[in-house]
Simulated scan of single mutants.
Amino acid sequence: MGWEMVAQVPDRLGHDQRYSLDSSKIEAIGYKPRIDFDAGLDQVVRWYRDHQDWWRRLKKTDR
């Protein structure tokens, strides 16, 4: 799977910029993440892959 699986939605064009984060203020006071973004994302994806029993149960109760 890759970006070819992403469908652009016409009414959302350009709106995603409002969700971007400016971390300059927190970085200015010395904050540095303990885990870089790619490694953290990998950990989250692996957790959800390895704990499907947890989230699938939640998904079933949403309906």
Rank of each mutant, 00 (worst) to 15 (best):
M1Q: 00
M1A: 09
G2H: 05
G2Y: 00
G2N: 10
G2S: 11
W3V: 11
W3K: 10
W3Q: 07
E4A: 07
E4Y: 03
E4G: 01
E4M: 02
M5K: 09
M5V: 09
M5I: 07
M5P: 10
M5A: 14
M5N: 12
A7W: 12
A7E: 15
Q8D: 15
Q8N: 11
Q8Y: 14
V9C: 04
V9Q: 13
P10H: 11
P10T: 08
D11A: 08
D11E: 15
D11Q: 09
R12G: 07
R12F: 12
L13F: 13
G14A: 01
H15D: 15
H15K: 15
D16F: 09
D16S: 06
Q17D: 08
R18D: 06
Y19R: 14
Y19C: 12
Y19T: 03
S20L: 12
S20K: 13
S20Y: 04
L21E: 11
D22C: 03
S23D: 13
S23Y: 12
S23G: 14
S24Y: 12
S24F: 02
S24L: 10
S24P: 01
K25C: 06
K25T: 13
K25D: 06
I26N: 01
E27K: 04
E27L: 12
E27G: 01
E27W: 00
A28I: 07
A28M: 13
Y31Q: 02
Y31M: 07
Y31P: 00
Y31K: 01
K32Y: 03
K32G: 01
K32E: 06
P33Y: 01
P33Q: 15
R34T: 12
R34N: 09
R34F: 02
I35P: 01
D36S: 04
D36H: 04
F37Y: 07
F37W: 11
F37H: 08
F37M: 05
D38L: 13
A39P: 00
A39D: 10
G40R: 05
G40K: 05
D42S: 03
Q43C: 05
Q43S: 06
Q43Y: 08
Q43D: 08
Q43P: 00
V44K: 08
V44Y: 01
V45I: 12
V45F: 11
V45R: 10
V45T: 07
R46W: 00
R46D: 05
R46N: 11
R46A: 05
W47Q: 12
W47T: 02
Y48E: 09
Y48A: 09
R49I: 09
R49E: 15
H51G: 03
Q52M: 07
Q52P: 02
D53I: 04
D53V: 00
D53C: 00
D53A: 09
W54V: 12
W55S: 04
W55T: 04
W55P: 00
W55D: 03
W55Q: 01
W55H: 06
R56I: 10
R56Q: 13
R57E: 14
L58I: 07
L58V: 05
K59E: 15
K60V: 10
K60E: 14
K60A: 11
K60H: 12
K60W: 07
T61L: 09
T61I: 13
D62E: 15
D62Q: 15
R63E: 05
R63M: 10
